[in-house]
Amino acid sequence: MTRRHDGTLHVSRREVLTLGAGTFLGVVTSWRRVTLQAPDSLPGSGPSGRLWDPARAGRPLPPVTAADNDAAIQGIEKQIHCTCGCNQDVYTCRTTDFTCTTSPAMHRRVVALAQAGKSGQQILDEFVHEHGLAILMAPPKRGFNLIGYLVPPVAFLVAAAVLTLVLRRWVRAAPAAVAATASGGPDATPEELARLRRELERLSS
């Protein structure tokens, strides 16, 4: 290929043929590549393709293992507070915030302890031993902590008892108040009043 004095390019026939053949081979090769990759997205076909830009998909994750879906492990993890600041349990955090590195580490610790033969309670005790009681999603129901659980129901019982007493007192005081105003009442027999009251009840119900 030579450039002439007027700036135009002179291309020989051989060069044109070589270029054409190269282009054809390039297209064919890339076409083969496309057709090879296409079945990748069909059921039951070969290995996974690489992403165009893996960084956009976030932190690379390890494949899911049987322990990740183990109901017993999940049950334990739902009682442990993730310390990343998410205010979630370990299971929820590791299956929600996939940028978090704390909950996967805590999950691995739970799995390791379970594989070492520890029971659910022993695993929780181990976490409490390492991180303190705040690691649990709710304080254990024993000792002083019981106050935390008992105050609302006790408050309910006390309030209900007080309300019942007050209502009783009000009810007892009511006939006297009604009697005091009875002289100014309507001109009707008790039967008529009872009937009227029933009708009003029916209307207001």
Partner: peptide, 16 residues
């Protein structure tokens, strides 16, 4: 369905 991420930059994806 939640896409957690991918395994080693491939199309193998972790879902919940």
């Amino acid at each position: 369905g939640v896409l957690g991420g991918t395994v080693n930059g491939t199309e193998q994806a972790v879902f919940r």
